[in-house]
Simulated assay, not measured.
Amino acid sequence: MGLIILLVVGGVIGWLASMVMRTDAQQGILLNIVVGIVGAILAGVVLNPLIGGGNIMSGSFNASSLLVSFLGAVVLLAIVNLFRRGSMR
């Protein structure tokens, strides 16, 4: 059950990040899930030690962990856009 919740939350976070970065037309649902989960991992490794809080990868679904995961997904999309197009958009 935890895996299903992680996939749904990762998909929503990836979709919201793609809307912010204007890459939603290029991505499908699978890529949104991947971006959300990888962004959560990135945020868990980089941002959580700096500001504290939980991580959605460990099952903590509170507001701070969701916000940090969202920021990680946005940063991930910005890095992908930087390498793909040469600009952050």
Rank of each mutant, 00 (worst) to 15 (best):
M1F: 14
M1E: 11
G2E: 11
L3F: 12
L3C: 09
L3P: 01
I4S: 10
I4P: 01
L6P: 03
L6W: 01
L7N: 07
L7H: 05
V8I: 13
V8E: 04
V9A: 04
V9F: 03
G10T: 00
G10V: 00
G11E: 00
G14L: 01
W15C: 04
W15D: 01
S18C: 12
S18E: 07
T23S: 15
D24I: 09
D24N: 13
Q26K: 15
Q27D: 14
G28K: 06
I29A: 11
L30Q: 06
L30T: 07
L31N: 10
L31G: 14
L31T: 11
N32G: 10
I33F: 00
I33C: 03
V35S: 03
G36H: 01
I37D: 00
I37G: 00
V38W: 04
V38M: 07
A40P: 07
A40W: 07
I41V: 11
I41R: 08
L42I: 09
G44F: 06
G44L: 06
G44A: 03
G44N: 07
V45P: 05
V45T: 10
V46M: 10
V46H: 06
N48T: 15
N48I: 12
L50K: 02
L50P: 02
I51P: 00
G52R: 08
G52H: 05
G53I: 02
G53P: 05
G54T: 04
N55D: 12
N55W: 02
I56W: 07
S58H: 13
S58V: 10
G59T: 08
S60A: 14
F61N: 10
N62D: 15
A63S: 12
S64R: 15
S65Y: 08
S65W: 07
S65H: 10
L67D: 06
V68F: 02
S69V: 04
F70Y: 15
F70P: 05
G72T: 03
G72F: 03
V74S: 04
V74D: 02
L76I: 02
L77Y: 04
I79F: 11
N81P: 05
L82I: 10
F83H: 11
F83L: 14
R84G: 09
R84P: 01
R84A: 14
R84S: 14
R85A: 14
G86V: 07
G86M: 08
G86I: 09
M88W: 15
R89D: 13
